[in-house]
């Protein structure tokens, strides 16, 4: 396990920020392992994305604009990565810990007979051995695990955990051959982008989340969204808010919703039930706005402001906007 390969998940060349975080991480790890940093970009729009990736510190970007990648589910990607891994030789393969990334990572575990470390937030290389730090059980435990050798290892990478930094000599862009003689089983009949153009919750550096204390759907639009926007962040919610139909379930954070770990989490009118806590407790900084000083969220927030959200949030939005100007 000496080289590093980044699987670049994208749609028509649009890729989440975690790709660039992984490209930066790959360089660092490859240098420590004494190997090369590679990236694999396949599917429509790949060549365009490869141009952007060139300015990240990678050695080689392997590209194919193969439309089959988009027409079939998963199988073509696995075939390309398998081929790339075998061509590059013993490597650590980095995959984003996203819905789509997990599928690819799982298939590779069996395809390459490799170990996996999941949702990594830090790495250490000790005597050529790769160790990963991973929060588990909703952040109740921090674990460290190491690969026991083996030619290949898979790591899924938590978005926002590593910094993205362009630079480097400029990667060589190389075509990668389409694997021959493969059949793909699952046909994608319809592919719908619910393109709100907004940042995915798990990716957002700042999350402004609302709960039952907001009393209805409107404050999410008129109050939380503008604040989130000032931060370049996204809006989330408690289950109570999703159950009430104020926001879609895709915004729910917690045990039965999404797990987020932004640099800053602002909980507005959320009491901080354990099922909510497990979805956000590993956020960098937690700020709560709650009119009840005894709300459980105060027990694990870095700052709790006791007061009326409807009075505080608009004022805060103004302050943040003014600071940016």
């Amino acid at each position: 396990m000496q080289n590093v390969i980044v699987y670049v998940q994208h749609k028509q060349g649009n890729t989440p920020k975690v790709t660039f975080e992984m490209a930066t991480l790959a360089r660092k790890l490859a240098d420590q392992l004494g190997g090369k940093a590679h990236a694999v970009v396949v599917g429509a729009g790949s060549s365009r994305l490869a141009e952007t990736l060139k300015s990240y510190p990678l050695d080689v970007v392997h590209v194919n604009d193969d439309a089959d990648v988009d027409g079939f589910l998963l199988d073509p990607i696995v075939e390309y990565l398998d081929a790339a891994a075998k061509a590059v030789g013993p490597s650590l393969i980095l995959v984003a810990n996203t819905l789509g990334g997990k599928d690819v990572a799982g298939r590779l575990v069996a395809r390459l007979g490799a170990g996996i470390v999941a949702d990594a937030t830090d790495f250490k290389i000790e005597g050529g051995k790769v160790e990963a730090v991973m929060p588990k059980m909703g952040g109740a435990a921090i674990t460290t695990a190491a690969f026991k050798g083996g030619a290949y290892g898979i790591a899924t990478i938590r978005p926002n955990a590593f910094a993205a930094q362009a630079g480097g000599a400029g990667a060589a862009v190389q075509p990668i051959e389409k694997p021959v003689g493969k059949s793909y089983a699952v046909v994608v009949e319809n592919d719908v982008e619910e393109g709100t153009g907004e940042l995915a919750l798990e990716e957002a550096p700042v999350v402004v989340a609302g709960g039952r204390g907001l009393g209805g759907p409107d404050p999410f639009e008129t109050m939380l969204k503008p604040l989130a926007k000032e931060f370049g962040g996204a809006v989330g919610a408690s289950r109570a808010a999703a159950d009430a139909g104020w926001v879609p379930y895709s915004l729910q954070i917690g045990q039965t919703g999404k797990t987020v770990s932004p640099n800053l989490y602002i909980a507005v009118g959320i009491s901080g039930a354990i099922q909510h806590k497990v979805g956000m407790r590993s956020s960098g900084t937690i700020v709560a706005i709650n009119k009840d000083a005894a709300a459980p969220i105060a027990e694990f927030s870095d700052l709790t402001v006791v007061g009326d959200a409807f009075a505080i949030v608009p004022e805060l939005t103004k302050l943040v906007a003014a600071a940016k100007a």
């Binding site: 170990g115 470390v117 435990a141 921090i142 000083a293 700052l303 402001v305 007061g307 505080i312």
Partner: peptide
């Protein structure tokens, strides 16, 4: 196993932070 667990530890304690009573919106926001 292809991986081994080296450590399993509680997260850094996230102690109770500051709690500030806000008399009005502007004070809370500040």
């Amino acid at each position: 196993a292809k991986t081994e667990l080296l450590s399993f530890a509680p997260p850094p304690v996230r102690g109770k932070g500051n709690v500030v009573e806000a008399a009005d919106g502007a004070t809370g926001a500040k």
